[in-house]
């Protein structure tokens, strides 16, 4: 494999992971987490685990992001208590 691509993907994984837990906005965190999942999917594909990559792409990057966004849609800007 081309190690430069792997290095770039790994760096984006780390940046997205740190960004997802530090960013204040919940919607931003959900999107960053989706990007993190997609980069993990690329990593699995690079390592030859295509089945795992497929699962990560459909579950991690696809449906769980939708579920997060649907839940964030139900939250309000300020707490009620």
């Amino acid at each position: 494999m081309i190690w430069q691509i792997e290095l770039v993907v790994l760096l984006i994984v780390i940046i997205c992971g740190i960004g997802a837990i530090t960013v204040k906005d919940l919607l931003g965190a959900a999107i960053l987490f989706g990007a993190y999942s997609f980069m993990m999917c690329l990593l699995w594909a690079i390592m030859g685990a295509v089945d795992v990559a497929f699962t990560e792409a459909s579950v991690g990057a696809g449906v769980s992001t939708v579920l997060f966004v649907a839940t964030v849609f139900r939250t309000s800007r300020r707490t009620k208590d």
Binding site: V50, D51, A53, F54, S58, V59, G62, V63
Partner: peptide, 11 residues
């Protein structure tokens, strides 16, 4: 091919 119950169910 890659895939199966979990992935197909999610899609």
């Amino acid at each position: 091919s890659p895939g199966g119950g979990f992935q197909g169910g999610v899609i």
